[in-house]
Amino acid sequence: MTRLVRVPLADQVADVLAERIRAGEWPLGAKLPGETTLALQLGVGRSTVREAIRRLAGRGVLDSRHGAGVYVTALDAPEDWDQVLRRADIVTVIEARTAIEVEAAMLAAERRTPADLRAIRGALLARDESGRSVEDHVDADTALHRAIVVAAHNEVLTEMFDGFTARVRRAMVNMLRLRPVADEKMDQDAHAMLVDAIVARRPHAAAQASREHLSALKAGFA
């Protein structure tokens, strides 16, 4: 059965503007018409145009300059996260998590502060609560891993993690419904080992614990 996906109007407008840029209507460095003009051309509200411009600015195609207007800064952009992740299978998702989280675990062990440790320990404890739904488990697990990423004190890694996990939450929920964790205690112990390495300032041990946990998760779906 074909799955229908509702595309937000702002995304549709962003795609139209990007196509007009690629077609040469506005060359590199050109100033776009104002929001009111674009809204009339496209038959949408100004707020939708504004959101579409914001999304294209985030992809590096446009630059919104306060008081000066919106300018073309690139003629194309890499495919956005949503399109990539819609095609991704769960193994690909876990591989991407590994790329982010193993490095973050190592940096967290080097840079964590007392406040970071409180957040990480609290998240580990919350993750161990029983009787939760699959959705609650995924959210608790994500909160722990995010606390570790934040403790790395690298804004780019945090932004990548946030942008990534928000989009793959449903995939993780579906994954656990299909194949629940075989041994919840062992799984929790693996996370505790990761936390212990961060607490002890052992970066290589933290990276290894993170990699082993995610590799075991990947093995179940390969």
Rank of each mutant, 00 (worst) to 15 (best):
P33W: 10
P33K: 08
E35M: 14
T36G: 10
T37H: 09
T37V: 14
L38K: 05
L42M: 12
L42W: 02
L42Y: 03
V44Y: 03
R46Y: 07
R46L: 11
S47E: 14
V49T: 05
V49G: 01
R50A: 08
R50T: 04
E51Y: 00
A52D: 08
R55F: 10
L56Q: 07
A57F: 10
G58I: 11
R59Q: 10
R59F: 07
G60N: 08
G60L: 05
V61H: 05
L62D: 06
S64H: 05
R65L: 08
H66Q: 12
G67T: 03
V70W: 04
Y71S: 08
V72S: 04
T73L: 02
T73A: 11
T73D: 06
T73H: 05
A74D: 05
A74H: 08
L75G: 12
A77L: 06
D80L: 02
Q83P: 03
V84N: 08
L85W: 08
R86F: 11
R87I: 09
A88S: 13
A88M: 06
D89P: 03
D89Y: 05
I90L: 10
I90N: 06
I90A: 02
T92D: 10
V93M: 01
V93K: 03
I94W: 02
R97W: 03
R97I: 04
A99G: 10
A99L: 15
I100K: 04
E103V: 13
A104F: 15
A105E: 08
A105I: 04
A105L: 06
A105G: 08
E110N: 09
R111A: 09
T113D: 09
P114V: 00
L117S: 12
R118N: 13
I120E: 02
I120Y: 01
G122F: 03
A123E: 11
A123D: 12
A123G: 14
L124M: 07
A126Y: 02
R127I: 06
D128S: 15
S130L: 13
S130K: 12
S130V: 11
G131E: 11
R132Y: 12
S133F: 11
S133G: 12
V134R: 07
V134G: 08
E135S: 09
E135H: 11
D136N: 06
V138S: 01
D139G: 00
D141N: 12
T142K: 02
A143C: 06
L144D: 01
R146S: 00
R146P: 00
R146Y: 00
I148C: 00
I148E: 00
I148A: 00
A151W: 09
N154V: 03
N154E: 06
E155W: 05
E155H: 10
V156L: 12
V156W: 07
V156Y: 09
T158V: 15
T158E: 15
E159R: 14
M160S: 13
D162E: 12
F164L: 11
F164A: 11
F164Y: 15
A166T: 09
A166K: 12
R167N: 12
V168P: 00
V168I: 06
V168M: 00
V168Y: 01
V168T: 07
R170A: 14
R170N: 11
